[in-house]
Computed example of a mutant assay.
Amino acid sequence: MRFAFCRYRRPFRQPLRTRYGLWSIREGILVRLTDAETGGQGYGEIAPIPWLGSETVEEALAFCQQLPPELSEAEIEKIPATLPATRFGLECAWLACRDPGWLARDLSGLSWCGLFGKTPPSGSYPAYKVKVGVEPLEQEVKKLESWLEQLPAGSCLRLDANGGLSLEGARRWLALCDRINQEWPGKIEFFEQPLPPAQHADLSRLSWEFQTPIALDESVVGLEQLQAVHQAGWKGILVVKPSLVGSCLALRDYLRQHPSLDLAFSSALETPIGAWHGLVWAGSLQAKTAHPRALGWGVGEFFQEGDPLTLITLSAQERAALMQAVWERHSQP
């Protein structure tokens, strides 16, 4: 396979405020593999988020620069676990080039999780995510009542702290979630990563102390981390961002061996290229989990263009044309 790559910089519509600081520009690498015999092409995307535990864009770029112009499947399989986003991007480009039906997947029957921003949510998803741990706890607790009032009927909330709470703060939040769920069962679907990964023992204790389910995200970014946490006895929800997990083929095999896993799949804010690959894998794998959950790709408001959910309504030919257009836009000098 002939190998080509280019770096991209994609500004957010508004900088994202996270516990790691303001995030203004999404950076990554687009890759293209071309079958020398058939001329068929497959696009992929390397979309690292280093503060979540993946490689940096610079590390991925350095790896791509030392690869030969012709790649084999064996060389992709040898990409180390320390470069999970790189493995995902090249593996998906290979699959897209080899599988004629890759762009023709029907994902219309899936359900989605949207994001709760400064304005009331648009549309009606079964679940919405809201970030906490960014402002003082008292202010955010007061906002929770407003978030619940704006929630569409029948929808639930996912709260995500990105590991930014203290143990005391996590207990206060989870106690409040338990009270809400006692009055409105299931209104808080789960609380995502209240504490940093280093406090795994505390996370385990919290999962026993409170009724509200806890989901681990930053603790299980790569497949090796996910396997280690699962094999250490974690029984709760694990969040998977396909673009950061590494080999989704290996994740599929692990899920076959452990069908009791409870996984929640989520976007890593990719271009339409990476978004499609993530959606295909999430749609394929979530039905095999113990508790299929809404997929976290309702993120279209973050960018001027490229709402990933519009991919669902396109034909295979339209998806191929869109990926080529994304490549051409970012590969031009």
Results as ranks from 00 to 15, higher is better:
200 H>I: 14
241 K>I: 05
191 F>S: 03
214 I>N: 09
203 L>N: 12
195 L>C: 15
225 Q>L: 06
178 D>M: 07
193 Q>K: 14
213 P>N: 01
180 I>G: 02
189 E>I: 00
243 S>T: 14
243 S>I: 12
203 L>F: 06
254 Y>M: 06
220 V>W: 02
179 R>W: 09
198 A>E: 15
226 L>P: 05
227 Q>R: 09
251 L>V: 03
258 H>V: 08
250 A>D: 09
178 D>T: 08
224 E>R: 15
213 P>L: 09
233 G>W: 03
202 D>L: 13
193 Q>W: 10
253 D>W: 00
252 R>V: 01
245 V>Y: 00
237 I>N: 13
185 P>N: 12
209 E>A: 05
253 D>I: 01
251 L>P: 04
235 K>E: 14
221 V>K: 00
204 S>L: 12
229 V>D: 06
210 F>L: 02
217 D>C: 05
243 S>F: 11
210 F>W: 08
236 G>Y: 03
220 V>S: 02
206 L>Y: 12
202 D>C: 11
257 Q>M: 04
249 L>Y: 00
241 K>A: 12
196 P>G: 10
183 E>P: 01
202 D>K: 12
205 R>E: 14
204 S>E: 13
222 G>T: 11
207 S>Y: 06
235 K>D: 15
181 N>P: 08
232 A>C: 11
251 L>F: 04
194 P>M: 07
248 C>G: 06
220 V>Y: 04
229 V>I: 12
178 D>E: 07
245 V>R: 08
192 E>D: 05
179 R>V: 11
207 S>L: 02
254 Y>K: 01
250 A>T: 09
242 P>L: 04
222 G>F: 00
243 S>Q: 15
245 V>I: 15
185 P>S: 15
251 L>R: 01
257 Q>N: 03
240 V>F: 08
243 S>H: 12
207 S>N: 10
239 V>Y: 08
207 S>R: 12
193 Q>A: 13
240 V>W: 07
201 A>H: 13
236 G>W: 03
255 L>H: 05
212 T>I: 03
198 A>D: 13
200 H>R: 13
222 G>H: 07
183 E>L: 11
250 A>L: 10
228 A>Q: 08
218 E>K: 03
221 V>M: 06
185 P>H: 14
187 K>G: 06
248 C>P: 10
241 K>T: 09
210 F>H: 13
242 P>V: 04
205 R>A: 15
186 G>Y: 14
236 G>A: 08
253 D>P: 00
199 Q>G: 04
235 K>N: 13
204 S>G: 05
190 F>K: 00
218 E>S: 01
256 R>K: 15
209 E>H: 02
210 F>A: 05
196 P>R: 09
215 A>M: 05
232 A>F: 07
206 L>T: 10
207 S>D: 04
196 P>D: 06
206 L>E: 06
238 L>Y: 14
235 K>M: 11
225 Q>K: 06
216 L>W: 02
249 L>E: 09
179 R>F: 04
180 I>E: 09
234 W>T: 03
234 W>N: 06
227 Q>T: 10
